[in-house]
Design a binder for these strands. Structure first.
Ligand SMILES: [Mn+2]
Ligand SMILES: [Mn+2]
Ligand SMILES: [Zn+2]
Ligand SMILES: [Zn+2]
Lengths: 137, 137
DNA sequence: TTCTACATTATAATAGTTCTAAACTGTTGA
DNA sequence: TCAACAGTTTAGAACTATTATAATGTAGAA
């Protein structure tokens, strides 16, 4: 929960110019206690719901990619026709509800340590993520 | 490692007519000891490399989807611009090499038991898959 | 204020996938 | 045996998420 001048600092300190588009998107993504998952399309809808100044689709893509690159967003690997992003950048896992097509966080503490007993020579591990697919019981 | 008449039986017994296109795709996908990962594009290339009778792209998609539905193939959840399929339908996990854009199996035995200590009411777990992203060390 | 690199934008392009509808074929049963 | 039918294949169009282009706008520095 930050105010605009905090977003301006945050953007500036990561080398991103604090444009009104980026500040607006920060407000939508980060002005809440709860983290959430979204697609580009979700974000576009939220933007048009909360402002009259439209932000172009290209800018939404550009901004999400910039934020991901800076580590303010994560992309969640689920097979889908579109990308899912996560404002929760801490290490955690996911349920994917195949009926509702909905992603739900699993706290890292709710998953026993995932031990990978094999390596690929010349490669280092970047992330270990568990995806639990669920369906109506 | 089956011969064509086995594929014919396999297809027929699962309610799929054994057309020459499906038999050919069975040969490419299942006529080997080793399982492997592929994209639709990979499969199209293998087909044109091993036969003169071309199979339309629509049929390749149709067939892969039909085989997935029957459980002869799995789709691997990674966020990418294209779908990855797996002829290994047993329970296992994956490395994803982000440099080579390559999927590598992790035997289930090489991953410590993944304990999920939380549930979603009204939902049952369908699968638990670990994706280990790796990059050049 | 002026300059410049960075950012936004509309729009076109791209690429994987799905749809359409006509032609074809495996299977059934008279 | 073979006509009938449902299932299958096909070329190509359509669709959709995403990325590229290139012109215009703007933040920040000097
Ligand atoms: Mn998909
Ligand atoms: Mn994607
Ligand atoms: Zn999450
Ligand atoms: Zn695999």
């Amino acid at each position: 929960m930050l105010n605009n001048s905090n977003y301006i600092d945050k953007l500036r300190s990561s080398g991103l110019r604090p444009t009104k588009q980026r500040i607006k998107i920060c407000e939508i993504l980060f002005d809440t206690d709860k983290t959430f998952h979204f697609t580009i399309n979700d974000l576009v809808k939220k933007i048009s719901k909360t402002t009259n100044d439209k932000i172009s689709l290209a800018t939404v893509y550009n901004t999400v990619h910039a934020f991901k690159k800076k580590g303010y967003l994560k992309e969640i690997p689920i097979n889908s026709d579109q990308s899912y992003f996560d404002t929760n950048t801490s290490h955690h896992h996911h349920f994917y509800d195949e009926n509702q097509k909905d992603l739900i966080d699993i706290d890292d503490a709710d998953v026993g340590p995932v031990k990978i007993n094999t390596r690929i020579p010349g490669k280092k591990i970047k992330s270990v993520e568990v995806l639990v697919k669920v369906e109506d019981a």
